[in-house]
Design a protein around this nucleic acid. Structure first.
Ligand SMILES: [Mn+2]
Ligand SMILES: [Mn+2]
Ligand SMILES: [Mn+2]
Ligand SMILES: [Mn+2]
Lengths: 220, 220
DNA sequence: GCTTTTTTTTAGATTTGACTAAATATATTT
DNA sequence: AAATATATTTAGTCAAATCTAAAAAAAAGC
């Protein structure tokens, strides 16, 4: 039950890609992992042999129960480390991912459970994504994209669906982060940009592309 | 300037073995790393090609300046994580090494320097070993073995020279740890065992083997 | 429905790190 | 100084993870 860094990166990425569509293709996975399709096929054969996923040649693949369990353990490690880096070591929002990408592969269970306790069992990572608990349970969290929120409805940012450095830099600049309260003031049909109010009297305009990547939870 | 996990483990181990003798042999290193002499020879060629050590076939090897610099960076990471695990996550003395053995290979400089700051720039790891600073400077720390301390001289434990689980378990049982004040009450010639006083009125006897692995610093 | 394009898989090569068995160099005895 | 024993290196394999180029399958276009 111990997997190599490569295997773990493949497993985690399949998990994330699956969420959108039911099944993941060779090209998608190669693109995401910045590797070649031929390498993906090789690894899929290996992960199938280890009984972590369903795979028939040319038919795409998806994690089975065991694979999902492994993926959630990796995601738990990743997000706990992100929380630690942001909260304790004062890394900024957009720096944590890269470092957590390495730390997630240290897979000592006791370490992670003690880290979890030390951090006070946080529910979400710095990007607002839910942290699976020690049993792999993860909050569903039905999130809505900002453009779907009606005008003049106060709401709270709970995550971003794209986590590139570029978007995080922009959000940082506009002081929009997890927990930020905001409200839509105007919707412009021309380019679908939004004028929003953050804080007491800060008004700013955000593009459609940005708004679509800002996730909101409803209770607020 | 980025090294694989294997390369780092070799470099670190050479550094530790060097301290005792000037030069390290193939067999010593193979024994320490639980690998085969042939594998050691292969790796020595690689590390020589990367200009990290002096090596002539059959003549043993030792790190050069660059190799030493790399080793100290690894040791810094190892000991800072050990301190974190013991101090923040409440791991016991004898559990930290194994976990740090993995964490030490996450070599993000900013991570380590922020961790150092978060921990308050500790000087020593939980075993009393000095932690190199961000520039690779390490405290010399002229340590004396317990048997060399005269009778009835109060002193402070500052480290253990053997860090197997077995010895740490024994020290834990006898409540001897870094910072423990103690004093030798009697030396028995028969088996060279020592009767020592720890705390106000605790008297215990320790074997020659144990005493030789308990390190003392003089200021106390 | 056949042709063309795209996707995926296979075949074959490379790199890293490890191993065993054999050869060679060094150290120790006699 | 040989002979023997020990230590070290070399030669040849192997498994993991990657790659390029070619073949095969599936999808899209006409
Ligand atoms: Mn990773
Ligand atoms: Mn995250
Ligand atoms: Mn290590
Ligand atoms: Mn230590």
């Amino acid at each position: 039950m111990n997997y190599s860094v490569s295997e773990e990166n493949y497993i985690k990425t399949i998990f994330h890609l699956q969420k959108k569509e039911g099944t993941v293709t060779t090209n998608e996975l190669a693109g995401e992992l910045k590797t070649r399709p031929a390498s993906v096929t090789d690894m899929m054969k290996k992960l199938k042999a280890k009984k972590l996923l369903h795979y028939q040649p040319y038919q795409g693949f998806r994690l089975n129960n065991d694979g999902t369990r492994v993926a959630l353990a990796i995601i738990r490690r990743h997000r706990l480390w992100e929380y630690f880096l942001a909260e304790k070591l004062k890394f900024t929002w957009d720096e944590v991912h890269e470092v957590a990408e390495e730390l997630e592969h240290v897979s000592n269970k006791k370490l992670i459970d003690k880290l979890d306790a030390f951090l006070g069992y946080p529910k979400n990572d710095p990007h607002g994504d839910p942290i699976p608990d020690a049993n792999g349970k993860i909050e569903s969290g039905k999130k809505i994209r900002l453009p779907e929120i009606p005008l003049h409805t106060p709401c709270i940012v709970s995550g971003v669906s794209n986590q590139s450095g570029d978007i995080l830099e922009l959000l940082e600049h506009k002081k929009i982060r997890i927990g930020t309260r905001l409200e839509i003031r105007k919707k412009f049909d021309f380019d679908e940009s939004l004028e929003i109010k953050t804080g007491k009297q800060t008004i700013t305009t955000i593009s459609r592309q940005l708004a679509e990547n800002i996730l909101i939870t409803h209770e607020a």
